[in-house]
Every structure is written in structure tokens, then in C-alpha cells.
């Protein structure tokens, strides 16, 4: 059963766990934070990969869900800090688990609303509409001053998780890593399930799916909502990592980056987002250390990848065939 892709995936998973632990005990907490960033972006991209990789839905607006997750963490924490009740007299909270749940629900609801309209269209319309809806939320966040507006919203103390000191880098990394692992397992289960079969078939041939009696629109909408939920949780983690949330989490650059991660790693591949995120973050870090103009070279590298290395890194290493 162990084919090349499985072995490769296991190796990536182990490396992503072992290196930060080693770095932590070598007294290099910065690398732990870097790995945390990789894990969180991976999770966000795993969410997008569900819509984009399995369903062929090129969402250029996933920053919306990432940002909503981030603001959920920021807003709940700020209310818990100030003691002011949220709407309906509900209090804020510092508990990550509650925050994740709320982020997931909020992300899911917004994904449902955006999907309801966007999924009536396809192709390039879908790309642009998801982008536009994300921009709408972005501008709302900028012009709505209650939670910091353009300046963003600080989280003064990282939120809490029962029995874990989240303030230290390594435990927080492990939380993020565990959530990424759960995300990957869910992705794999969904991809292999009846729903996953219908979703992947919808990408390949919508008419065929309808002709066997499965409604493609509802399959896609469900996938889009699940996808948004994953990405929203990642957003909440990201806000807690930086102890800060700002409209930049909602920006279209972030939506673009999430797509980049997936293409770098390999579209529709289980570990595509993880490999893509690792390469992207490390590249950013490495280029950033060499030159102030790292974005320029990052652009050149990305361009090279699209033009010459199709199928992403996982595709390069594990070969193209994967469909049974």
C-alpha cells in the first residue's frame, strides 16, 4: 500500500514535527515560530484545496474566511479583556476551543452566503466574484472603526488552551500542528468519501454528475462551506500567533498566496498545501535575508514554477498518476 506519495507525505509530516522540536531545544525559538506559520498557512490552504483541488472551484477570496477567523479571535479576546458583553449580552472568551468553534461557524455562514451567489457562475466569473466578495469584507473591516479599522486589533495575551502554556512557542506550535493533522485527516476522509467522489466528479464533468441524479450546485456549496470553515480556523490560529489581527488578513494578496501555496505544492494533493506552505515561507525567509527586494525574486520563481514545473512539487516527486 505504501506508494511513493504516502512515504513522501509521512516524511514531510515528520520533518515538520521534528525540526521545530529540535530548534526549540537548540535555543532557536524563532524557527519554531516559522514552523508554526507554515502549519497555520498549510491548514488554511488545506481548506482551499478542498474547494480548489477536489472541486475545481478557483476561489480567489479565501482571505475572507482567513480574516473572519482572525477577527473572531481578536474580537472575542478583546471583549474578554475589557469585560464588555458582545451582542445579545454574550461575553467574550479567551478559550481557544470556543474561539475555533465560533470562527468555524462564522466562516461557514459567510462561505454559505458567498457561495450561494458565486456558485451560480463558473470559470473566470467565479474567480472574480469570490475576489470581489472578499474585497467587500476587506473594505468593511477598514471602514468599521469599532474593532480597530485600518489599524487592526491587538490581542494582548495569547488565548488559552486547557493544560497548555500557549505563550511558549513550542506548545503553541504543537497545537497548530495537531489541528493541521486533524485537517489533513478530514481532507483525506472527505476526498475518499461519497461526497468526495461526487465533488471530484463535479470538477471533471458537471453534466455527468447531474445526469446520475446528483445536484452539482449543492455538492459545490457544501464543499465551499467546509472549505471556508477550515480556513477560518487557520485564521484564528494566525491571529493568536501574531497576537494581532488586521485587514491585511483579508487582503487579496493573501487569497493569492493561498492559491500559490497549493499550486507550488500540487493541486488536489493531500500534502500539496503543506509542501507549498513550507517552500513559500522558507523562500520568503531565505530571500528576505539576502535581499530587501525578495518579492521581486519570489515573483520570478513563481513564474518559473507555473511556466515550467506543472503539477507542483508533490507531482514532481511522487509522479502524476493518482486517480483510482
Amino acid at each position: 500500500m505504501a506508494n511513493r506519495e504516502t512515504i513522501f507525505n509521512l516524511a514531510v509530516a515528520l520533518l515538520l514535527l521534528a525540526l521545530p522540536i529540535a530548534a526549540n531545544y537548540a535555543g532557536e525559538p524563532f524557527y519554531v515560530t516559522l514552523a508554526t506559520r507554515i502549519a497555520i498557512l498549510s491548514l488554511a490552504a488545506v481548506g482551499l484545496n478542498l474547494a480548489l483541488g477536489l472541486g475545481g472551484l478557483v476561489s480567489f477570496g479565501h482571505a475572507a474566511f482567513f480574516g473572519i477567523g482572525g477577527y473572531t479571535a481578536g474580537i472575542l479576546a478583546s471583549h474578554a479583556f475589557s469585560g464588555d458583553p458582545l451582542i445579545f449580552g454574550l461575553p467574550g472568551t479567551k478559550q481557544m476551543i470556543v474561539i475555533w468553534l465560533v470562527a468555524m461557524i462564522a466562516g461557514g455562514i459567510v462561505a454559505f452566503l458567498i457561495g450561494l451567489i458565486s456558485l451560480r457562475t463558473a470559470g473566470v466569473y467565479f474567480i472574480m466574484i469570490t475576489l470581489a466578495f472578499a474585497q467587500m469584507i476587506f473594505y468593511f473591516a477598514i471602514s468599521w472603526p469599532a474593532y480597530g479599522g485600518e489599524d487592526g486589533l491587538p490581542i494582548f495575551v495569547r488565548n488559552q488552551f486547557p493544560g497548555v502554556n500557549t505563550l511558549r512557542p513550542l506548545p503553541y506550535f504543537l497545537i497548530c500542528y495537531a489541528l493541521l493533522a486533524i485537517g489533513l485527516i478530514l481532507f483525506k476522509l472527505i476526498a475518499d468519501s461519497r461526497f468526495g467522489a461526487a465533488l471530484q466528479a463535479t470538477r471533471q464533468n458537471e453534466v455527468r454528475v447531474a445526469s446520475v441524479g446528483i445536484p452539482p450546485y449543492r455538492i459545490r456549496l457544501a464543499a465551499f462551506v467546509i472549505s471556508g470553515m477550515f480556513t477560518a480556523i487557520a485564521g484564528a490560529l494566525f491571529a493568536d500567533l501574531n497576537r494581532f489581527v488586521s485587514p491585511s488578513m483579508l487582503s487579496w494578496h493573501l487569497s493569492g498566496e493561498l492559491i500559490v501555496l497549493i499550486i507550488l505544492g500540487g493541486v488536489g494533493r493531500l500534502f500539496g498545501p503543506v509542501v507549498g506552505a513550507a517552500i513559500y515561507v522558507l523562500l520568503e525567509f531565505w530571500l528576505g535575508g539576502i535581499t530587501e527586494r525578495w518579492q521581486f525574486f519570489l515573483g520570478l520563481i513563481l513564474l518559473g514554477v507555473v511556466l515550467f514545473a506543472r503539477g507542483g512539487v508533490v507531482g514532481l516527486i511522487a509522479g502524476r498518476a493518482r486517480h483510482g
Binding site: 480548489l52 478557483v58 480567489f60 470559470g123 473566470v124 474567480i127 493569492g256 492559491i259 500559490v260 499550486i263 493541486v267 527586494r293 525578495w294 518579492q295 521581486f296 519570489l298 515573483g299 520570478l300 513563481l302 513564474l303 514554477v305 507555473v306 511556466l307 506543472r310
Partner: peptide, 17 residues
């Protein structure tokens, strides 16, 4: 369209920087 999005996204980075 996915490749087009990524390639032209890369062009933005190159142009801007």
C-alpha cells in the same frame, strides 16, 4: 485559469517590487 491567475500574480510581484 488557475495557471493564468498564478502567473499574472507573480507578474504583479515583479512589477511592484
Amino acid at each position: 485559469h488557475l495557471d493564468q491567475v498564478l502567473a499574472t500574480f507573480a507578474l504583479i510581484l515583479i512589477f511592484s517590487e
